[in-house]
Design a protein around this nucleic acid. Structure first.
Lengths: 261, 261
DNA sequence: CCGTAAGCTTTACGCCGTTCACTAAAGCTG
DNA sequence: CAGCTTTAGTGAACGGCGTAAAGCTTACGG
């Protein structure tokens, strides 16, 4: 009875110590892993091509030359598959954001942040359906999945850690801690605890600024992905760049010309 | 053959000049209107209860004691119904935002804006599914509906017109026109043209500030609706109020204590 | 009064997720 | 090796979905 969330069939054997290799995954689990990957790849193909509603077990199975019930050996249902894809996508997005900053020198704080924020936008625009799968409002009843939650928090943490250095440099004027109301402080405490920030590293003012940056970035990008303003504004890149400049202006960052595309 | 968008069956007769009443809608069209309303009401009930995916023609028909194909006399399909609901919702949202400002005296510009922005948030939070139906990323292939587009632009216009007076008062420091890049200016021109703003009324700087406000408000509220930050921050109201204060701070607006709830 | 159209039902087709009973193969164990 | 157990996968089936076509009934308009 496959009742567990993600791995209906659990590995019984694997530590049998094969001939040459130490902890060989075992032939069995290798092909299983491959099938699992194939399912998710097909799900993503359909996701990109037809949007979230185009992802169906039957269609995926058809693409793979098998029947839908067979997929239940790998996922406990469509929701489970979608959640697995969501978790993967969060990791991918984290990597895209972090990867954009990596090649730049450590002391080029502004450049690293700019590159990452632009990478976030780029990823979103080149993965519209994926982005909306990640950030869509969930239906009222469906409970959040643990893996997705964790992956999301990992993304949040990796995203915010971008600002660590900039905050440390103290170039941004932060609101004083006592300008921040007690309720908000409470929330920021909770936030810091869950994302690995501690108030020692980042003052309330810093967390406040972080949240503000994220809200603006997220708001603009998600509007762009949804093409909400597109019919009345056309290309939104100039607005994005202007917002970027605005967000980072207090730090005196030089924002001119993205070097990509 | 009902191929048109919204009204498969179009009224032939109505100007027949009844006995007493001038342009009486005619009994026929009255019951039709009532049924139409009933369908949309049922759609909204299910929308609120189970989210967008819970809205199905068959379920609605069942609730109304009829069969699904009967609904095709009123809507050309599920999408058409959803678009009609969307248009209604945009009007409702516009009204909620405008209505919140109405009771306040005309010269209380800050108060009116605050009330409207809070009303936007309140409406969104008490109509999560409706909000996400309005602002969800559409699937890659489906073309935008004309009525929805118009209703959306009406909302945008009514929303932005809130700021008319504040901009006129000149209390917000605006970026100089020549600080705004030529591409962005082009976009803002397009935007102004579509929403009724003219550059005479509002400078590029003003439009720029408007957009920034909207992006922040939208970003925060849509994150709150999606409960994206909720698992790590809990109640987001303090953050919202802080953002409000931030957004309107340059104008010296007094933001203390919302009088509602 | 009769033709015509509107409102609605029945039937049907092809999707969908999911369950269940079943087979065939692979792996482990004695 | 035999034999047992687990796994991967199939086929049929249930119920729900959108929607197209055809038919029936009722009300309206000339």
């Amino acid at each position: 009875m496959p009742a567990e969330a993600s791995a209906p069939t659990g590995g019984g054997t694997q530590a049998q110590a094969g001939p040459g290799e130490a902890a060989a995954p075992g032939r069995r689990e290798r092909v299983r892993e491959a099938t699992l990957r194939e399912i998710k790849d097909n799900a993503r193909r359909r996701l990109a091509a037809e949007g979230p509603s185009g992802v169906s077990l039957r269609a995926i199975a058809r693409d793979m030359g098998m029947t839908a019930p067979g997929l239940y050996r790998y996922f406990s249902g469509l929701d489970d598959l979608l959640n697995a894809v969501r978790a993967d996508l969060f990791h991918e997005l984290s990597e895209a954001v972090a990867g954009a900053a990596a090649p730049l020198p450590t002391d080029d704080t502004d450049g690293r942040i700019l590159a990452s924020l632009r990478a976030f936008r780029s990823w979103a625009l080149s993965h519209r359906a994926e982005f909306s799968l990640l950030f869509a409002t969930p239906a009222p009843q469906d409970a959040p999945d643990q893996r997705v939650l964790e992956a999301g928090q990992e993304f949040a943490a990796s995203f915010f850690s971008l600002f660590d250095r900039m905050l440390a440099e103290g170039r941004i004027p932060l609101p004083a801690d006592d300008e921040i109301g007690p309720e908000l402080r409470e929330r920021l405490d909770a936030f810091a605890a869950k994302t690995g920030f501690t108030i020692d590293n980042a003052s309330y003012g810093a967390l406040r600024v972080l949240m503000s940056c994220w809200v603006r970035l997220y708001g603009l990008v998600s509007m762009e992905v949804a093409e909400h303003l597109t019919p009345i504004m056309g290309d939104m890149e100039p607005l994005f760049e202007a917002e970027l400049q605005d967000i980072l202006a207090p730090s005196g960052a030089a924002c001119r010309a993205s070097d990509q595309d």
